[in-house]
Structures are given as structure tokens and as C-alpha cells.
């Protein structure tokens, strides 16, 4: 079956004072209808930029999409007209953001902000759109939705605002929802609620979701597949259970080992709190070798020569590493 979204060899660059930053390098990923793709990776690795590229919202200047293709249902988004993009945003693809506190317009009622999305994409009346936005608020679990629709964002908590964002994003039944760290700014109990809500809505509507998160626990519960990013590259991708139980790339292994755990016996290999030593290299000066090489325990001479390509090790599982055999043993 053809994927719903297909991103191929995406290149995104940013002009900075230090030179051209290669923020995304040959990023390729597919999302199929109705699935949840998890995207993980440490801060600054390009997760949000991948999302914004798909939305056509890379801030430009200083950013620009320098190459690659993005297709939604076979339609090329990078060459689509502005008019077509406006039609698609909010209708076919929606996005929710990391910062619920600042992502809603402070001067409009939340009901109005949901209704606006409906009015933009569907032929309906203002009062019908308002009714639908009250229904959406109810669906995302906001109590007394008819009254809350008249609230302004500042009258709501962060968790509530993120629910409103979800209501806006799902108001027109998009085929794809991009959730960019939707819970990072929220406290733990609220995080779990938001994840539950997203999963529930996903089951009801069949919307595909790209779930960007730092939360490995959420990935293991929600995602069907996972893509792991490092310094603008996708370095491993596969089914969630494969990635979590048989991670191949040294970085993915490190990332999983970093999840704090409370097992009885912390060991040298598995302490309570692990970390990957070193930092991400500057994106303006990546060199020609594997971007992870400077931090990698399994580094060989090959690694500093060129960037390994993402190659299949099984039907679903791909990794970009030269030393899979040594890493595995």
C-alpha cells in the first residue's frame, strides 16, 4: 500500500552567523494511513524542523528547504501553490506544538479559534461552526464545553490549552496529525492524560500521527513504528518493539539505556541514570564522517570517512552504521 506521507532525502539548511547549518540531511520517512510513527532524538536533532518542513512552515529566511521531496497522497507539497497549501493545512495535515502556553492567540475566545479552523475549510455557518467547536471541546475532555468555549486562553491551564490545540488540529478530521512534543511543557499526570487522549482520538478517527517525543515510555505505548534522529539524520527506523528490544545503532542503544529506571540492582552497565557522553557536533561543521562517530564507543576508521547510509537489516528495520556486527556482539 502506498504511504500517506512520503518524505525523501529532505535537506533543510539555515543561514547562521557561523555559516550554513545543515539542519536536516537526507531525511526520509514514510507514514501510512492510521499509524502512529514515533520520532525520537535529543534536543536540536531536527525533529521540529522535520515537522515544520512537512507543514511548509520552515521559517524562511533564515531557513530553506534545499532538496528532497515531500508527498502527501502522491501530491508534491514542496511545489504546491500557496493557495493549495492553505487549503491543506488544518484540513489534511494538522500540527500541535510543544508550547501550549503561547500557542493560542490571547485575544480570541478558544471556541472562536476552533470555529475559525472549521470555517476556513468547510462551507458552513458561524453558528454551526461554533456548535461543532463546542462538540470538539467536549471530545477532547474539557468539562462544561459550552461554557468553556467562551473562555480566553489565559483562563485555562497548560493541559487545558493543549486539549484546545488538539481540538483545533482535529476539527476538520485531518488525515495526518503532527504532534511535536505535545506534553513536554506539562506536568507528569497531565502528560499521561494527553497521551491517552491522543491515542483514543486516533482510534476513533483513524488519523495517522507523527508523534515527536523524548518520552520512550510514551513511544513504547503509542507508536507502531519509530524513527530515531541524530544531528539532522535518521539513523535508525523500524517497528517499535524491534527498536526497543533490539536496538542496533549505538546511539539508539544509548538513548534506551538513558531512560531512568528503578530496578532493584543498578549495575555498571545499567545505572539508575545513564547518559551518552559528549555533545551533538555543530551543524555548521559536520565533516564527512558519521555524525555520531565522535561520541561512539565502537568507532573505527571507516566511521570518520563517510556518513553510513540507512540500510535495511530486515523488512521493516533500517540502520545507518558501519559496524553493526561489532555493536551487536
Amino acid at each position: 500500500m502506498a504511504p500517506l506521507l512520503s518524505v525523501k532525502n529532505l535537506l533543510v539548511e539555515f543561514k547562521t552567523r557561523a555559516g550554513i547549518a545543515k539542519v536536516l540531511n537526507n531525511v526520509s520517512l514514510d507514514v501510512h494511513s492510521g499509524e502512529i510513527l514515533g520520532v525520537v532524538g535529543e534536543s536540536g536533532c531536527g525533529k521540529s524542523m522535520t515537522a515544520l518542513s512537512i507543514m511548509g512552515l520552515v521559517p524562511s529566511p533564515p531557513g530553506n528547504v534545499a532538496g528532497g521531496t515531500i508527498e502527501l497522497n502522491g501530491e508534491d507539497l514542496l511545489s504546491a501553490s500557496n493557495k493549495r497549501l492553505h487549503q491543506m493545512r488544518g484540513k489534511e495535515i494538522s500540527m500541535i506544538f510543544q508550547e501550549p502556553m503561547t500557542s493560542l492567540n490571547p485575544v480570541f475566545k478558544v471556541g472562536h479559534q476552533i470555529a475559525e479552523a472549521i470555517l476556513l475549510h468547510e462551507k458552513t455557518t458561524k453558528s454551526l461552526a461554533w456548535e461543532r467547536s463546542v462538540k470538539m471541546l467536549d471530545r477532547v475532555g474539557i468539562p462544561e464545553a459550552a461554557i468553556r468555549a467562551n473562555s480566553y486562553p489565559h483562563e485555562m491551564s497548560g493541559g487545558m490549552r493543549q486539549r484546545v490545540m488538539i481540538a483545533i488540529a482535529l476539527a476538520c478530521n485531518p488525515k495526518l496529525l503532527i504532534a511535536d512534543e505535545p506534553t513536554t511543557a506539562l506536568d507528569v499526570t497531565v502528560q499521561a492524560q494527553i497521551f491517552d487522549l491522543l491515542r483514543e482520538l486516533q482510534r476513533e478517527t483513524g488519523t495517522a500521527i507523527i508523534m515527536i517525543t523524548h518520552d520512550m515510555g510514551a513511544i513504547s505505548e503509542l507508536a507502531d513504528r519509530v524513527a530515531v534522529m541524530y544531528a539532522g539524520h535518521i539513523i535508525e527506523t523500524g517497528d517499535t518493539k524491534d527498536i526497543l528490544s533490539k536496538p542496533q545503532h549505538p546511539y539508539t542503544r544509548g538513548l534506551i539505556a538513558c531512560v531512568p529506571h528503578l530496578e532493584e540492582n543498578p549495575s555498571e552497565e545499567r545505572p539508575y541514570l545513564a547518559e551518552i557522553p559528549g555533545v551533538v557536533p555543530p551543524l555548521t561543521d559536520l565533516g564527512k564522517g558519521c555524525t555520531f562517530a565522535p561520541r561512539c564507543d565502537f568507532r573505527t576508521d571507516d566511521c570518520t570517512g563517510s556518513q553510513p547510509s540507512l540500510s535495511k537489516i530486515s523488512d521493516q528495520h533500517s540502520v545507518s552504521c558501519f559496524n553493526l556486527n561489532t555493536v551487536a556482539s
Binding site: 507543514m55 512552515l57 500557496n82 493557495k83 492553505h86 487549503q87 491543506m88 493545512r89 488544518g90 484540513k91 494538522s94 500540527m95 506544538f97 508550547e99 503561547t102 500557542s103 493560542l104 492567540n105 490571547p106 475559525e116 479552523a117 476556513l120 475549510h121 490545540m165 483545533i168 488540529a169
Partner: peptide, 21 residues
């Protein structure tokens, strides 16, 4: 600001972003 990005993400077009949001 973030809320303008939200408006763009829901499909609001240029003139309305400037003149309204």
C-alpha cells in the same frame, strides 16, 4: 510568535494573518 504559527498551521492565509491575527 507561537500563536501566529498556530494560525498558519490551521490554514489561515497571509492577509488574514497580518490584518486579523
Amino acid at each position: 510568535s507561537d500563536y501566529i504559527r498556530t494560525a498558519r498551521a490551521k490554514g489561515v492565509s497571509g492577509p488574514k494573518i497580518y490584518g486579523y491575527h
